[in-house]
Design a protein around this nucleic acid. Structure first.
Lengths: 255, 255
DNA sequence: AAGTGGTCTAGACCACGTT
DNA sequence: ACGTGGTCTAGACCACTTT
């Protein structure tokens, strides 16, 4: 097939709407994302070996490798030499670290504790609808939670989720769960956060927020507005966080 | 050479202290970084073709390709199909965008203007020495500058540079230069900023800073502490910025 | 037409982890 | 011993840019 392999598309039975056109390895990549999105392999599980995938998609191992390489670079997959390639999961601390960017002024690690202050069903306002690609008035699960480090209240998060995707979500379920929130979203609702965009601003603590954090109103807070996306680049979370940055800071790398 | 190529090191004449051991393409990568650091190819110039590099290092084109691929992913190099591979430069807006993370609440682009308020020689205090891997008391160039967008003062930066690396730097030179600061560092001092680490906090505007920005003292500001690194991971800039975030925000992507 | 990077293949061997 | 991903090679052809 060395000749017929160039410029071609994959057999139509395999190529779905998302995958199309151009480089073979991009088509493979799209097919893999599609399979991940469909839940063919769950977070933490291994995907088929490169040789199996090559045979399944009728391409060479090298082409599969390039597709998997890129997905690993984007942290959708995790390679482990000698063992296989695995679907990334928020139950690994390494992944969580990518989404929780607070670090202590001292070098110490941070024993984090999450407490849910509120959880209710509301209707999407214009801002939520825009962020989550819904319609105004669509059902939303609204959560307010407090993050504490070493016993010190540090972050208040207001989290807004599409009601359609998080059917049974309740305060009890949230509080009964230890470990990262995104880990629970994975396990309980089959929704994997893969990427996020954030907007950061400085603000003055409002009374309500200050109460939650146990600080004086009017102290400066770091306001972090986040939209999180799952596999197919679909937004599935809007989150507005208020961070006390006297003992902790938001770390970032420019590459 | 298909057999002798595995597990070997490059000929000793080529391998320098930084490069050593293990995967061939990593050795090539280190050699390329070393060449960049030595200024063998200047920012904006093209490096030799893959075939030339393969011949120079006595490896296959594929191995060079993998080394160059990684350097391109790290933005040290920029590939252009049909033309060649080029040393990245801060004179391209695309690169500048990576280090200037402010965006407008409206979607508009931002005509930026930089004005130098102060430029003097000082001695490194403990914090500067630690950040820049110098000794306390070593010479430092300290710059204060104001960034304005669409005529609105928005950022005050305090910039600290190792005096040894920026000999002729003066307020006149700074003000006589239009375009990005890092572009000037490249052209005038041969120092390329490649990567940076930032710590973000919220603060209240101090009187001095508020005056520069034309705002009331006590409004909330975003404080951004940055350490910038050049090719060999050597820190060459400490920068503390104070951002007004009413019309602009700091954008970030979590991948 | 010639030169560059971009894609694809095929096959070999290495390093790691499990059986 | 076997299967996994990791590295390396060699060669073919494609797509883009310049001459």
């Amino acid at each position: 097939m060395s000749d017929s392999a160039r410029g071609r598309n994959l057999p139509l039975g395999q190529v779905a709407s998302a995958a199309a056109f151009s480089p073979l390895y991009q088509q493979i990549k799209a097919l893999l994302v599609q399979a991940l999105d469909a839940g063919e392999w769950k977070p933490g599980e291994s995907i088929p070996s490169e040789i199996e995938l090559a045979s399944r998609f009728q391409v060479s191992q090298g082409t599969v490798r390039k597709a998997v390489d890129e997905l690993a670079a984007e942290h959708l997959l995790t390679r482990r030499q000698g063992k296989g390639t695995f679907v990334s999961t928020h139950h690994e601390p390494r992944v969580r670290f990518r989404f929780l960017r607070l670090a202590s002024n001292e070098g110490e690690p941070q024993p984090a504790e999450s407490r849910v202050l509120d959880c209710r069903r509301i209707r999407a306002n214009a801002e939520m609808a825009r962020a989550l690609e819904l319609k105004s008035g669509d059902p939303i699960v609204a959560i307010r939670r407090l993050l504490s480090f070493a016993g010190t209240p540090t972050v208040v998060d207001d989290i807004y989720l599409p009601g359609a995707l998080f059917k049974g979500l309740s305060a009890d379920l949230l509080n009964g769960y230890s470990g990262p929130l995104y880990g629970m979203f994975e396990s309980e609702f089959g929704i994997s956060m893969v990427r996020a965009e954030e907007k950061l601003r400085a603000e003055l603590a409002e009374i309500e927020i200050a109460k939650c954090l146990g600080v004086e109103p009017g102290i400066p807070l770091l306001c972090v507005e986040r939209i999180s996306y799952t596999y197919a680049n679909r937004p599935v979370e809007l989150r507005v966080g208020h961070y006390v940055t006297s003992q902790y800071y938001y770390r970032n790398s420019l590459n």
